[in-house]
């Protein structure tokens, strides 16, 4: 990434207020993303991935305890915008979203074509027929037959509905699309098809992707960059080439070793224990309790170390 990145996220924080205290779902997240690139945010259940997506898009629930940090989109800090400016110029216009389980969230009483056209009408005041024409173009892009424009969501298979949700995110020609677990509810074959679509879109359109997922193997097909999330924090960011060959952080290493690989005698490994609660995460390294490499220093929070352009939050690389 030689030139200025499209997106730069610095110390992003989103805490939720609950009866038992603050849930530190996003706690100092940082990463970068270039034009026409895809960054994969890898993390396991409950580590704060969906909360990160909400923080980026400012789709906040009522019980926000703390929301802070910097998000530079083309060099402008969009955290400084007020809500109205954010709604008018950012969300769905320059940055759009395919939420987790989007395919089950389509409006059941609207034709899918109308739904895909809607963001054009709402955000650009486009005339309905033009918006529908744009929707038709998007259907072609994502491989949904045109005669599906007039159908309802329940008439479509899971894979087709997910494509419709992707078409809806693309219709306003945003520069950045955030996909939260786009294929985790789908069968392997359908998953493969959706990823083929995403790979093609990335080649053909001027768009960057933030792909949020727990699926390490699938993510390697699209990723230019990788950011690994653990207990609300990014613990490693790297370019994909290097990450999938040799990740640096002990958690990343163990995570990769737990993925089953076909036709090998290498048995997949596992990480014993479980991630800490986000209510009162430990003071030091959040992975320390499960880390085989832990040493005295790990009871203090490790800073982010820079190892040949890879950022890793671990004392081993001091």
């Amino acid at each position: 990434m030689a030139k200025e990145p499209l997106l730069r996220v610095n110390d992003l924080v989103l805490h939720f207020r609950t009866r038992n205290g603050a849930v530190q779902a996003v706690d100092g997240v940082f990463f970068e993303l270039g034009y026409k690139e895809a960054v994969v945010i890898l993390g396991e259940s409950g580590c704060g991935k969906s909360s990160l997506a909400r923080a980026l898009l400012r789709l906040l629930p009522r019980n926000v305890e703390r929301y802070s940090g910097k998000i530079y989109l083309e060099n402008a800090n969009i955290m400084a915008l007020d809500d109205e400016q954010f709604r008018q110029n950012i969300r769905w216009v320059r940055m759009s979203f395919v939420p987790q389980a989007a395919m089950n969230a389509l409006n059941p009483v609207l034709r899918v074509g109308d739904q895909v056209a809607e963001p054009m009408i709402v955000h650009y005041g486009t005339k309905k027929e033009d918006a529908l024409a744009q929707a038709a173009k998007m259907f072609q892009q994502v491989g949904v037959p045109l005669d599906f424009l007039n159908r309802y969501a329940f008439e479509l298979s899971g894979g087709m509905r997910q494509r419709v949700a992707i078409a809806m995110a693309l219709v306003t020609a945003p520069m950045l699309v955030i996909l939260d677990e786009p294929t985790s509810a789908l069968d392997v074959l359908t998953q493969a098809n959706i990823f083929n679509v995403l790979k093609r879109l990335k080649k053909e359109l001027e768009v960057s992707f933030i792909l949020i997922t727990h699926d390490i193997a699938t993510s390697s097909e699209l990723a230019d960059r990788v950011a690994v999330m653990y207990a609300g924090q990014i613990i490693e960011t790297s370019d994909a080439q290097r990450f999938f060959r040799e990740p640096l952080h002990p958690y990343s290493k163990m995570l990769m070793a737990s993925v089953p690989r076909l036709r090998t005698n290498v048995e997949p490994d596992f990480i014993s224990g479980q991630p800490p609660s986000l209510l009162k995460p430990p003071q030091g390294c959040r992975f320390a309790e499960r880390c085989p490499k832990r040493f005295a220093k790990c009871s203090q929070e490790p800073p982010v170390m820079n190892v040949d352009g890879i950022q890793v939050k671990c004392w081993l690389y001091e």
Binding site: A192, A217, F244
Partner: peptide, 12 residues
Amino acid sequence: LLSAIPIPHPNA
């Protein structure tokens, strides 16, 4: 089904 199984590899 076998071909659809992704592998975690940078050149995948």
